[in-house]
Design a protein around this nucleic acid. Structure first.
Lengths: 115, 115
DNA sequence: ATATATGTTCGCATTATTGCGAACGCATGT
DNA sequence: ACATGCGTTCGCAATAATGCGAACATATAT
């Protein structure tokens, strides 16, 4: 696994795992990556990428050509375990698929409400 | 300017600039960065970062310590012209401020509706 | 069997972002 | 004047993401 990093599978079945993670992150080792929230968010991004690509009826190679990269990069980004997303790449893909990237920093408590 | 990159200031006062940008991006030079949309999104991220930090009553150095970095990094990210956001750093900051990062890839046409 | 298209993984060079310290201008207070 | 804290900018090393080609497995079709 060269560029790929396995997402940490440590899961607490507790309901308020975010509180635990927050305390661990802020008080403990700040460099350490978040666990639950990050993985969930990542897989969401990957699923969204895959969804809008297939919705556009494009293969990974075709999208890669539009974006200006290769299929391997697209494949990486669509992998649910991939953590290394960058906003610039997300924007490039979104732009190629006539979409846009929306980022929101919202309080951790409230779940995502319907838009 | 070592790490900093100036945001392209080229703006079309036209209403549907996204169409223009999309055509230019997809058909023309795919490597080229988007203009209007990217800058707008960036400044939004920067503003959000600054907002949630000040809302938490933290200075850039204090937040940097929580996140596990230095004030210069925070300052960079809060600069509206900064383009180099990464999801991992956004998540680290959001986690330190008891928030979370939400990413959405949505069709370019519709504006952001209220949540 | 051959050809084609797809998604996938790998290795390595290139580029971008972070890490970190230092210094500056400015304001505030002692 | 001096000290402190704030945001900011710079330079450079270290890390991480991309760029790119190659190869593989699978499915479909000729």
């Amino acid at each position: 696994m060269p560029t790929r990093k396995k997402a940490t599978k440590t899961r607490k079945p507790t309901s308020d795992a975010l509180e635990v993670l927050h305390r661990r992150y802020v008080e403990g080792k700040p460099q350490m990556r978040s666990l639950l929230e990050e993985e969930r968010s990542n897989s969401t991004v990957a699923r969204q990428l895959c969804r809008i690509r297939e919705k556009a009826g494009l293969s990974q190679r075709e999208l890669a050509k539009l974006v200006g990269t290769t299929a391997s990069v697209i494949c990486r980004l669509e992998d649910a375990d991939y953590e290394g997303h960058s906003l610039s790449m997300l924007r490039r893909i979104a732009m190629a698929l006539n979409s846009r990237v929306e980022i929101r920093l919202i309080p951790a408590s409230r779940k995502h409400l319907r838009i």
